[in-house]
Amino acid sequence: MEDEIPNPKSEAERSETPETSAIPNARISILEIFLTFLVIGATSFGGGVVAYLRNSLVTKKQWLDDEGFLAALEISQALPGLNATNMAVIVGDRLRGVPGAVAGFLGITMPGAAVVFGLALFYANNSGNAAVNAVLKGVGAASVGLLLAVTLQIGHKQLEHRLDMALVALTLVLVSFIHVPLLYVLLTVGPIAVLLYRPHKLTPDRSGLDKRPLD
């Protein structure tokens, strides 16, 4: 894939900024950024938006190579906000600066936002309708299964130590059962977790933790 990138400067620019391996190309218009993310925003159903993003940005458009995609994804996951919108603004920004970020954001959110708004109006006018309530109840119940499956898949991929499980359990109990506000959970458990995994503790012989990155 990388060999097919037509821009001859891309190699040099990548080595300059290895984390930001978007291929700078002034010919990518704001409109094209908007339309590309609009298609992703209109066709990504069921939450697997990362797969749609990769297919479009890396495979079809070749705006990013795999390494650049993973670097952007890593940032998106570490920061507040949704992966999908964070990816849209980060990639848009790398391609065309702030206007590119705005185009990416509007593109990926507009189709779904319009659908949600339309359904919300319909819901408001039919709130007593038994059929509407039954459909939404069914969707809600099915969503619980989806959420659990996605969560366990992510957990299975990223967590491997007893310490991880203890932190999962601690967070879950604090939020779901003691109802501690999220801000306090993040401000207490977050630093504790980072300290437990602080650089010098990543020695396999003493703690059983390894140095491999998560993914």
Binding site: E74, Q77, A78, G140, S143, V144, L147, L148, V150, T151, I154, G155, Q158, L159, L163, D164, M165, L167, V168, A169, L170, T171, L172, V175, S176, L182, V185, L186, V189, G190, A193, V194, L195, L196, Y197, R198, P199, L202, K211, P213, L214
Partner: peptide, 24 residues
């Protein structure tokens, strides 16, 4: 430290996602 932050936050995120599942 960047790796430590990623490594430390990963289980918290999974815990929060489980909490989100329970909330729904």
């Amino acid at each position: 430290w960047r790796l430590a932050i990623q490594r430390g936050m990963a289980p918290i995120v999974v815990g929060l996602m489980l909490a989100g599942t329970i909330a729904i």
